[in-house]
């Protein structure tokens, strides 16, 4: 009894690794000393300090990405026990062990848990997810946004381009060009803005192009997975309505 009381409690991890983008994935097991309130990132830091596998063999430290450590930057997205989420807000005490870490393989895997989310930033460019305010002279203040509108629009602005919704979506894959839920919600955000609204049709047209909003199959995994609780399916349906209107407007040459 005395022995078990002094024995260091550990947390078991099974991590899917790969050395290069084109290399075959493999798993390695780690046993990390337990500390109260630790999260997946602090466990990965521990492995970085002492890169020894559960069987005692030395290995290269596990690579991952993270920045803010408070679930606002979107960098540490990975698949934890089968669900895509942020590693920084994944508390070890609330996870079933062994904790399985995998990269979000919907995206190109760079190394271990590091993925390339470039397609999300390309998507934001494609749908013009910004408000054009530049002119050759001072355009003056824009129209004001109603407070009631600002309140729901603020929820949409919480998107951190983390890619979890794309990983959860069954229609984002190599056989489909679907842009994914996040940029569709951003179109709703920027079209809601009184100045952004002036270019609303450009964003809608971008989503009525190949790989646009039609790729949504209504599985609604996105809204269940979004770490920021963004009403993605409401955004998609709202943009479905707006693109449908845009379609008829174009046909009737309005």
């Amino acid at each position: 009894m005395a022995e078990t009381a002094t024995k260091q409690r550990t947390v078991k991890f099974i991590i899917t690794r790969r050395e290069r983008p084109d290399a075959a994935p493999y798993t390695e097991e780690f046993e990390v000393p337990y500390r109260p309130n630790m999260n997946v990132i602090s466990a990965l830091m521990e492995i970085q300090r002492n890169p020894v596998k559960a069987d005692g063999g030395k290995t290269a430290p596990v690579c991952w990405e993270s920045n803010c450590l408070e679930e606002v930057c979107g960098a540490c997205s990975m698949v934890i026990n089968g669900k895509p989420r942020q590693a920084c807000s994944a508390l070890v005490d609330k996870l079933e062990q062994p904790i399985r870490l995998e990269p979000m393989s919907t995206f190109p895997v760079v190394r271990d848990l590091v993925i390339n989310r470039e397609r999300m930033f390309q998507a934001l460019k494609k749908v013009k997810a910004w408000i054009p305010i530049d002119g050759t002279y001072d355009l003056g203040p824009g129209p004001r946004m109603a407070e009631s509108k600002r309140q729901w629009a603020y929820e949409l602005s919480k998107c951190m381009t983390c890619g979890v919704c794309l990983e959860a979506c069954p229609n984002v894959n190599d056989r489909s060009t679907f842009i994914g839920p996040a940029p569709i919600s951003q179109v709703r955000l920027f079209n809601a803005h009184p100045t952004g609204e002036m270019n609303a049709h450009e964003r809608l047209e971008a989503l009525m192009d190949d790989g646009g909003i039609e790729g949504c199959g209504n599985s609604q995994n996105c809204v269940r997975s979004c770490p920021k609780g963004i009403p993605l399916t409401t955004s998609i349906a709202a943009i479905n309505r707006d693109t449908t209107k845009q379609l008829f407007k174009k046909w009737l040459s309005m």
Partner: peptide
Amino acid sequence: AYQSNLNTGRFSYGRN
């Protein structure tokens, strides 16, 4: 149908 993945194993939600 060909363009869709089936991921009900990972996401066993009613709508999925």
